[in-house]
């Protein structure tokens, strides 16, 4: 299996490597959906006393979190269209366009 193929990985890395399994994304999304359902439903089991009136709506934070995140992504995509320029826009003597100097690095590959 793919997650056992790299001998350089230690046990912690092999644990993380479970995320690269073929069905991992589906499983994680499924688990996340269940967790979301749980915390959403939990709103019915306690009395809300939020100071801001709108926050007393059932599942307010869930709606707000989902909608807010989605808005951020689409707004960012739109913003990128306006402000994106090539990497060396400020010339080749700009940090963004240059390679980091080797003296401050200690590259080491396994």
């Amino acid at each position: 299996m793919a997650h056992h193929s790299d001998p350089k990985m230690n046990s912690l890395a092999r644990f993380y490597h479970l995320t690269s399994r073929k069905r991992a994304m589906t499983v994680m999304l499924g688990g996340l959906t269940l967790s979301c359902a749980f915390v959403f439903g939990y709103d019915g089991f306690y009395q809300k006393h939020e100071k801001v009136e709108i926050a007393n709506i059932f599942g307010f934070y869930a709606y707000y979190g989902f909608a807010g995140f989605t808005f951020i992504i689409f707004a960012a995509l739109f913003l990128r269209k306006i402000i994106k320029r090539r990497e060396d826009f400020y010339g080749d003597q700009d940090v963004n366009a240059e390679e980091p100097p080797e003296h401050m690095l200690e590259r080491k590959d396994l």
Binding site: L29, F40, G65, F66
Partner: peptide, 25 residues
């Protein structure tokens, strides 16, 4: 705790969906 978890988990869910459908930048 529940409010914060709702906010974060549903935001994560939005990320998961958007990433899956290729809409994440």
């Amino acid at each position: 705790v529940i409010g914060q978890l709702q906010l974060l988990l549903f935001a994560l869910l939005a990320f998961g969906i958007l990433y899956r459908i290729g809409m994440h930048p």
